[in-house]
Simulated scan of single mutants.
Amino acid sequence: MSFVMRTARADDLQTLYELAKQTGGGFTNLPADRKALEEKLVRTELALAREGGEVEDELILMVLENCTTGQVRGTCQIFSKVGQSWPFYSYRLGVLTQHSRELSRTFRAEMLSLVTDLEGSTEVGGLFLHPRERAEGLGLLLARSRYLYIRNHRERFGERVIAELRGVIDEAGGSPFWDGLAGRFFGMTFQEADEFNAIHGNQFIADLMPKTPIYIAMLNEGARAVIGLPHPNGRAAMRMLETEGFTNPGYVDIFDGGPTMVGQINSLQTIAHAQDVTLGSIHDDGGEKHLIACGQRAEFRCTYGLVKRASNEGVSLDRESAERLAIEPGQSFTMVPRA
C-alpha cells in the first residue's frame, strides 16, 4: 500500500474540488465551491504556521496521497474549536412527559430543541474517500490519522470531540428532514441551504429559525422517519466512530437530521493506545500492521506500517513505510495497532 496522509497544501485545490464534486451533496465541510475550498486551505496554512500551544479556532485539512502516482484520493478535516466564529447549532432530542388525572393517561411527547451545547468542542469531519479507493482499510486510515494528529498536538485541542454524520438524502439530492421542518421557515431547498451554510456559515439559522421546541409528532412522516439516522453510505463510518469510543447522546444536525456523535479525546481508542517509539532498524518482510505517524504541524504524515518488536534499541519497521514517513533509525515515531 503506497498511501500516506499529510496536511493539505495550496496546490491541492484542484484535486479537492474534483473530490468535492463526487460527494453527492450534504457534505457541508467539503463544498464543491473553489472559493470556499481555497479559504479552507488558507486557514490550514495559517494554523500550521502558528507555533503557540493555545486552543484556537483553527482548521486542519488533510489529504490522502498515493505516493506512487502523486494523486490525492481522499480528505478529512479537524476543527480545533467549533462555535467561535458563529454559533454551533444542533437539535437535541428530548421527551416531555405530561399526565392527565382526568383521563388517567400519561403522554410522552418527543421534542427537538435548538441548542448550542456542543460549542467549544473539537470536530472531526469532511471525510471523503474516492469511490475507487474504498478498500484495504483506507477509510480507517483517513479517520484515525486525525486522532493521531490531535494526540501529537494535544495542547491545541480541548477535551471533547464531535463528529457529524450526513443524514438521509433522497435520490433527487433533497433532505426529507429539511423539507419537513426547517425548509418551511426558510423558503429555500436543502441544496440551497446546504451550499449557503458551507460558504457563509449558519447564522441565518439563528436569525430565522423558531427558538421554541419542535414536537416531532407534528412533522410529516418522511421527516420523522429519518431523525437521527445516518446516510446509508455513512453507516460504516458510524460503526467506526462507535468502535473508537464515540457515543450517540441524541444530538442531530439542523439541516439533514443526521446524528452527531460525541467522545472524550483522551478516551478515544487510537489516542489511548498510541505510543511513541524509537526506530531501531528497518526490515524487508513481515511484521504486524500498525498506523504510524511522525512530524509536527505541516510535516505531519501518517500511513500503515509493518512493525516488529526489536531489542531495547527500538522497534523495526518495514522499509516502504519508513520511506513514506522519511524516517531513519534513531528517530522516533508514533504507532498504534490497526485493529
Rank of each mutant, 00 (worst) to 15 (best):
L291T: 06
C294D: 11
G94R: 04
G125I: 02
A32Q: 09
T106F: 06
S321T: 12
E221V: 08
E39R: 15
I150Q: 06
H99E: 10
R9L: 13
L148D: 14
V124S: 00
G280T: 08
T303C: 09
S281R: 06
A32I: 04
L142Q: 06
T247L: 05
I227C: 01
Q203Y: 14
Y149F: 15
E313N: 05
R43H: 14
R319T: 14
L16P: 04
V252Q: 04
Y17D: 09
F157W: 10
L268E: 00
P131Q: 04
G258T: 10
V72L: 13
L140A: 15
F333M: 07
D253T: 07
K35Q: 15
D33Y: 06
V42F: 01
M5E: 08
A36K: 01
E195D: 15
R34A: 13
E65K: 10
F3Y: 15
A20D: 02
H200C: 07
G287T: 11
F333T: 14
E244V: 01
G167N: 06
G83K: 03
R156E: 08
R105M: 07
H99G: 09
F107I: 13
R132K: 03
I199T: 13
N266K: 10
R324E: 11
I205T: 07
V252R: 07
L19A: 10
I205Q: 02
G234P: 04
R301K: 12
S80T: 15
Y89N: 03
G250I: 07
R324C: 01
V262T: 04
S80M: 12
H130F: 02
G183K: 05
W86D: 09
S85N: 12
P337C: 09
Y149D: 12
R9F: 03
V4G: 00
A193Y: 04
E123S: 05
I60Q: 00
T69P: 08
I162P: 03
W86T: 12
W178D: 03
S145M: 08
T243I: 08
E110T: 05
L112S: 09
D194F: 00
